[in-house]
Write a protein that binds this DNA or RNA. Structure first.
Lengths: 192, 192
DNA sequence: TCCTCTCTTAGACAGATGACTAAGTCATTT
DNA sequence: AAATGACTTAGTCATCTGTCTAAGAGAGGA
């Protein structure tokens, strides 16, 4: 027999390797280029294991999405939970945003593109975005008051989230025009 | 013989129908779900015509991209070229942005997602974005001065382009939180 | 009328793909 | 040492996919 088991004790190395391979392939070829055999090859395991551990190719991507988004929320929490002053948090976040290594962002947006055509995945991503919004709203409450920003807090958070997302998308398309200028002006404005 | 001909006089109805079908399928199933036979079926033509007119599936998508981006630039030009006051132009643009029918935006972002994994397509899209930036820079030059906006023009244009793009991406993911609040505040601020 | 050229059709073909399975291996338990 | 159960392998199978081709339809000109 070789039926998928009810998640025994510890995850096998192969299972983790396949999820890692999924993330790597999302970066390298995008979700549309991911096949059972490519996954297995990238993970260095037999291609039958995709069925053994995940049942199907699609399910593997769902699991990869869940693992990735769990990590994403934790990472965002950690950034804004620290004791640093707000300006430092902002600078760290913006440094991540324009980092040369866009692997994390590529995975995130490939998963979003996948979800555009899969309503069940959209639910999961909507939850992550809501969590992200919550974290940012908390983080911006104090600076929003202190810096006397005209617009309502919710509008400010929306603006920050969306322009960040837009920068990521442009960068994935190879466009960098104006990004540095915008971020530098914001940085200078925060410092004053 | 059935070799692709050197674009005779007028395009056949089938050729147009295939390009139309490509756009419809981008909206309905995304680029990854587009196959030769689905294209032909959606266009109501024989699947052999994909090879006859475009040589390959991929080439058809490239042609669809070219046709779409041509229209996109024209549409953007037309919006900001009109004689209306700036506020009206802005309102029209924002109405398009949050329109219930996101077909146009879906096509645009599916093509971008396709380009993330295809360097040659990226060049084409980068050109469109550059053109869009040029149009917006012209349109914002006067209001930027009159409204005494603190940040440099280039930073402002970047902010507008990226937060618009971010809103589109969020909407494709089914997220609408805060969009109306942000746009309403901007609208109010412009009116004052 | 016949011929030419464009357009269309149906189908062939190799290769890839997702899903699945029988037969193993191997460590741990009894 | 035997048995158990998790893990792995190599391979099968039906289906789909992209590409290409031979054959024909039909319009317009000679």
């Amino acid at each position: 027999m070789s039926e998928p088991v009810s998640r025994p004790s510890g995850r096998s190395a192969a299972e983790e390797a396949l999820l890692d391979a999924a993330e790597r392939l999302l970066v390298e070829v995008g979700y549309a280029g991911i096949t059972t055999r490519k996954l297995a090859e990238a993970a260095g395991v037999n291609h039958g294991l995709v069925h053994y551990y995940f049942g199907s190719n699609e399910n593997l991507l769902v699991r990869a999405l869940e693992r990735f988004t769990d990590g994403l929320i934790a990472r965002q929490q950690a950034l804004y939970d620290s004791d640093e002053p707000f300006v430092e948090k902002w600078r760290t976040a913006m440094r991540f945003l324009v980092d040369d290594d866009a692997a994390y962002e590529k995975i995130w947006l490939e998963l979003q593109a996948l979800a555009w055509n899969d309503p069940s995945l959209r639910t999961r991503l909507a939850h992550v975005t809501a969590e992200w919004r919550r974290v940012l709203t908390d983080a911006f409450r104090e600076p929003h008051r202190q810096l006397e920003i005209g617009m309502p807090l919710e509008a400010l958070v929306t603006l920050v989230i969306t322009f960040n997302l837009g920068i990521i998308v442009e960068r994935l398309g190879g466009i960098h025009t104006g990004h540095a200028e915008l971020l530098e002006w914001i940085d200078g404005w925060l410092s004053s």
